[in-house]
Structure formats: structure tokens, C-alpha cells
Computed example of a mutant assay.
Amino acid sequence: MQNTIWRLMAGTALSLVTLASQAASTYKTVPVEITGVVKETAGPALRCPTKFGGTVTGYGDSELIGRNVFVGGDCIKASYPIFESSRGQLIILTTGGDQIFVTYSGQMVPTGDGANYVCSGGTFQIVGGTALYKNASGGGTLDCAEDLATGLGTLKLTGRISYFAPR
């Protein structure tokens, strides 16, 4: 019985702290742009319906969140010469330790210059995060370019983000 009372008191205290921290914050929706360089490694991926996917790593910069690193992956369906990217997921880590969770999809189409491809119809959605971005949401367009022979490329997310910002 005493453990139940202590758990109830702890849960109530935690709820009050959460409410107080949100009361000291304001829900903001602002533009966001994240640009960076990426390295994608494609290969077998059991999580994908096609059993083929990519692992993406990179780093970038943003006026809103500052310098950041990201890691993620996607599923790839080859419809040569176009590659469809689906079930994409990125974790963007800020230098402050906050994380933003992103999903994405789009197509990679050839530029006509060797193995160079660009994104077509790329979109992203912000689906949460940690700390400052715990309940973040938003989305926008995904622009990218990649040399499929090396996996090296660039990434640009342009859109809006909504989150609880400190007052």
C-alpha cells in the first residue's frame, strides 16, 4: 500500500514538472532549413520490402538548430534509371544533444552526367524528437544530389517545424 502511495505521488510530481515546463514554453512554428553533406551506402536491407536499402550518414548546418549530424536509412526500389526511396528515417542530432526525428521519401533521377542523380518529388515529415523537440512536427521538401558511384552527395531540408520553445 505504501509503495502505491509513493508511486502515485511520484507520478503526480512528474506530471506537475512537465506541465510547468510547458507553461514556461511557447509553441512555435517557424521556418527550418538544414543543409549538409551525406554518404549513402546501399546494400541488403531485410527491413525493406525490396530487401534493398541505404544507410545515410552526414553532417550539416542550420540557422535554427546550428551544426548537426545525422544518421538514417531508407528502402530503395530500382526502376532503372529511376530509384524510389521510401520508408526513409533520419535522426538529426544537434550539438546540444537534442534529436529531431524525420521520415522522408522521393525519387532519385539521373542528371545525364555519369552516375550523378538528384531528388525529384522529395518530401520530409518531422515526427518528434527528444528534449526541446520532444513533440516537434512539421515537414517540407527534400532536395538532394548524389553520385551513385561513390555515395557522396548533398542534402537540403526546407520547410517548417513546430515545437515548444523556451520563452
Rank of each mutant, 00 (worst) to 15 (best):
Met9Glu: 10
Ile91Asn: 06
Asn116Leu: 11
Val102Ile: 12
Asp98Ala: 07
Thr41Ser: 04
Ile100Asp: 05
Lys156Phe: 00
Ser21Asn: 09
Ala20Ser: 15
Thr4Trp: 14
Val102Trp: 05
Gly54Glu: 08
Ala115Trp: 00
Thr94Tyr: 05
Arg67Lys: 15
Val127Ser: 09
Cys75His: 03
Gly11Ala: 07
Leu46Ser: 12
Tyr80Leu: 01
Leu14Met: 14
Gly106Lys: 09
Thr29Arg: 11
Tyr133Trp: 12
Gln2Lys: 15
Tyr163Gln: 02
Leu90Gly: 12
Ala13Lys: 08
Gly88Trp: 11
Arg47Thr: 10
Thr41Glu: 01
Val30Gly: 06
Thr154His: 06
Val69His: 09
Gly97Leu: 08
Ser25Val: 10
Val30Ser: 09
Gly54Val: 13
Asp74Phe: 15
Asp143Met: 02
Ile100Lys: 01
Leu19Cys: 14
Leu93Trp: 00
Thr150Ser: 12
Gly139Tyr: 09
Tyr27Glu: 15
Gly121Glu: 00
Thr111His: 07
Ile126Val: 15
Thr41Asp: 07
Ile76Leu: 12
Gly139Thr: 05
Gln99Lys: 12
Ile65Tyr: 11
Tyr104Thr: 04
Gly11Pro: 01
Ala45Arg: 14
Thr50Leu: 08
Gly139Asp: 04
Gly73Asn: 14
Ile126Glu: 09
Asn116Glu: 06
Lys134Glu: 14
Thr111Glu: 14
Ser25Lys: 08
Ser21Asp: 13
Ser162His: 03
Gly72Cys: 15
Val56Ala: 06
Gly11Met: 14
Gly36Tyr: 04
Tyr59Ala: 15
Lys39Asn: 05
Trp6Glu: 14
Gln99Leu: 07
Glu146Gly: 05
Phe101Met: 14
Gly72Pro: 13
Met1Tyr: 05
Gly139Cys: 05
Asp147Arg: 03
Leu93Ser: 15
Pro81Lys: 00
Lys134His: 10
Gly114Trp: 01
Gln89Ala: 01
Gly106His: 09
Leu46Cys: 01
Ala45Lys: 12
Leu155Tyr: 01
Ile34Lys: 03
Phe164Leu: 05
Leu90Cys: 03
Thr95Tyr: 03
Arg87Ala: 13
Gly97Pro: 15
Pro44Arg: 06
Thr26Val: 10
Tyr80Pro: 01
Gly73Val: 07
Leu8Asp: 04
Arg160Gln: 11
Ser137Thr: 15
Cys75Glu: 12
Ser86Glu: 05
Gln99Asp: 01
Met9Trp: 05
Ile82Arg: 08
Val56Arg: 00
Asn135Pro: 00
Asn116Met: 13
